[in-house]
Computed example of a mutant assay.
Amino acid sequence: MKVIDKEQQIAEAFRRGETSAMDDLFALFSGYLMGVGMRYIADDDEVKDVLQEAFIKIFTQFHTFQYRGKGSLKAWVTRIMVNECLTTLRQKQKIDVVDGEQVPDLPDEEPDTEGLDGNVLMEMIRRLPEGYRQVLNLYVVEGLSHKEIGQMLHIKPDSSASQLHRAKTMLAKMINDYKRRLR
């Protein structure tokens, strides 16, 4: 007997025009996509607005989705959410590209994140300047190259690398400061 995963069930329900497919898709991915949005946008209300826009796009463009196996639906909805976040930030001109700024070197060692609560780390990431946060997420989480990030954000690949360095530096400082306060 062939086992059909939840993503495939939802895709097939959409193809059949079942209205419950939207509810199932929302229930499966809304929390996850909210987390994705929170990595890019610092304001919770703004993330909720972007999430709503992303789901509108997902529902209206579902006919373009091609099921390619387990995880393909999650990848597709994630890409839509990331693109909606970037579009929102571009429209509000919040992309903070800072070149020529003096930034301290990264610490010799990676910051100790052992025992660091995930929510605390998320809040630290959300405190990064918009441009730094975007590059950090696109590079570290989404796995894009600096060339791809440059194309998406309309910046030079060198600027992407520079912003990643600055984001890591700021994040390392926040983590080290937090750990010192706990001692």
Rank of each mutant, 00 (worst) to 15 (best):
P157G: 12
R127V: 04
H165A: 06
G69S: 02
Q93D: 15
A13M: 13
K48M: 07
V77W: 01
L116P: 01
E110V: 08
M174W: 03
K94N: 10
M22K: 12
Q9S: 11
R79N: 10
Q93C: 14
T113H: 00
K156V: 11
L106P: 09
Q102D: 06
T60P: 03
S20D: 11
D24C: 01
P157H: 14
R166T: 10
R90W: 13
S162P: 00
V97D: 04
D105G: 14
D112P: 04
A42F: 01
D105C: 13
L121V: 05
L73E: 09
M34V: 01
K74R: 15
L138E: 05
G150I: 15
L28P: 05
Y178K: 12
V135W: 02
V82Q: 05
N119T: 01
E110M: 11
F59H: 07
V135N: 05
Q91P: 04
D96C: 09
D96F: 04
T60K: 03
T113M: 06
L164H: 14
M1R: 15
V47I: 01
A161G: 14
G35M: 00
Q163T: 09
D177C: 07
V120G: 05
R16G: 10
I155S: 14
L25Q: 01
H154R: 15
V140T: 07
I4Q: 13
A167N: 07
N137F: 01
L128I: 03
M174S: 07
